[in-house]
Amino acid sequence: MNLHLSSIIVQTARNLKHTWGTQLMTLITVSLSVLMFSFFFLIFLNLKQAGGQISKNIRLIIYLNNDIPAAAQPQYIQKIKSFNKVDKIIFKTRNDALRQLRQQLGKDGDVLDDLTAGFLPPSIEVYPARDLVSLAKIKRFSDFLATLPGAQKVQYGHKWIERLSYFTQLIRLIVLLSGGLLVLTATFMVSSTIRLTVVSRNDELEILHILGASKSYLQMPLIIEGLLQGVIGSGIGLLCLYFLFNYIRSRFTGPGLMSIIHFSFLPPPTTAAILIISILLCTTGSIISIRKFLRF
């Protein structure tokens, strides 16, 4: 078994030595594809996480014409929940609104002394479920809430929520495209490289065949080549991503939006999955080429 392995390793090393230029180009392509895909996937995951964090603070305020009597509140709750999952619903009367405003004004609260509670409208505060899917549906949710009996208008930070939602959709699309690119480059580049190896080693393979080399003896070094392309290529790609991630995190943390978002690297299972899928793709490329071009 050891002899089998060492002999096959010798063959593989010989192949790599003879076609190192092509191998290097393929390795760079695989690394870049993995880097590109995992970079966008990382952005997507962080945005998704950020969306979850931001949505904790999101609420839709429905301003009403009149206070809702306590007996009618369960009907409102049922109606709201029938459209979308919500975490919390708070009913605020005109007095509650005035009290809240006074609290917010603090020491300057006395400016409200001459005013009656009637100048502020009653409201319902709706806290939607904390996930991005709900966030994306917020516009439709808002339109629905505006149709509730007694609703004057609905307010929420719709502009930036819509932008975040749009941006997340865009990143999702880029992740899908770069994933497709990874599949194509890993499979086809490795397949082409193995084809070149087979062509350049045709004489040697023919003589080995005549000398009685088994099918596995001829094929294994070529399969190992593809496998190595996957291991090293995706390894380099993910390592580059890690350094890039640390660089970006060290440069762009500070006040503003960046302080709200907690950046995190790809979780270990995701990293392992990218590694394994890349290896499988490269090995598949290798096998495709062997089946197509190895005549022995």
């Binding site: 002899l3 089998h4 060492s6 002999s7 010798v10 063959q11 010989r14 003879h18 004489d203 040697e204 003589i207 080995l208 000398l211 009685g212 080399a213 088994s214 003896y217």
Partner: peptide
């Protein structure tokens, strides 16, 4: 039918490598 990319040693070793002869 010698392989130009391989050395004399590697050319002669081929049939023995195929049968997994110890190095």
């Amino acid at each position: 039918k010698l392989l130009p990319k391989l050395t004399v040693y590697q050319n002669i070793a081929m049939p023995m490598e195929i049968t997994f002869t110890p190095p």
